[in-house]
Amino acid sequence: MTTLTRTPPAQALDRDAPIPLARVVRVELRKMFNTRSGFWLLASLVIVGVLATVGTILVAPDDQLTHNTFAAAIGFPMTIVLPIIAILSITGEWSQRTGLTTFTLVPHRGRVLVAKTIASVVVGIAAMLVALVVGVVGNVVGTTISGTDLVWDLSAAQFGTIVVGSLLCLLTGTMLGMLIRNSPGALVTYFVMTLVLPTLFGILAANQADFADVRPWVDAELARSFLFEGPPTGEQWGQVATTALLWLVLPALVGLRFVVRSEVK
């Protein structure tokens, strides 16, 4: 016992070497998946991807067994699971009170949040690449079973806009985690934002002709859908950027301020 507490580590440690950001990112990635809930969330990404592929083969009409169909079938559930991963990676520090350790080991909270955001984006991109590969396999297997022609109708540009759209979903989760700092609260708010709010906007647009024109500029969910439905026009990109500023960047800045100033108990 005595020797263990007093012996310095064999390789001399530079006590004044600051912790590099890359190391914080690796730690945050590890923390995302080394809990029971984290493990099953990651597993659910793969399970859902496989289920969606099998489902598409069984249900979709033969002439629609194309790469695009598979990619869309896998991509949709991911837009639900990825934001949950992003939310929990942040809210866990408060809901599970691990922030007490995290923010004393790295006493710059902004840095921890940057690392968490990078880690979430890395997971998001990796998940999209997995979806792409599963989609390829599904397309080959599916068309072989149905005996139809292989159709590769998913362009690189299209895949790119789908990735951007999914990352916007994921970052919305990051934003809500910072803003609310409570797992159930942030999860409920996420589903209100993505399910309830667009419905309200839809009802409003149906009854108010004026609002129908404005809607794509304020309805983040509608604007994001342009990214999933084929090449967006210049105006649509503008709408994506505007809604992202309104519903993502501004609240994230408020959330960042909360996180940096709040007391960790």
Binding site: R23, R26, R30, Q96, T98, L105
Partner: peptide, 18 residues
């Protein structure tokens, strides 16, 4: 103040890695 779903070894591992 620790994540209930994390093992003791992982908690030490996170600190060690950081």
């Amino acid at each position: 103040a620790q994540h209930a779903g994390r093992t003791g070894r992982e908690i030490l591992g996170i600190a060690q890695q950081t």
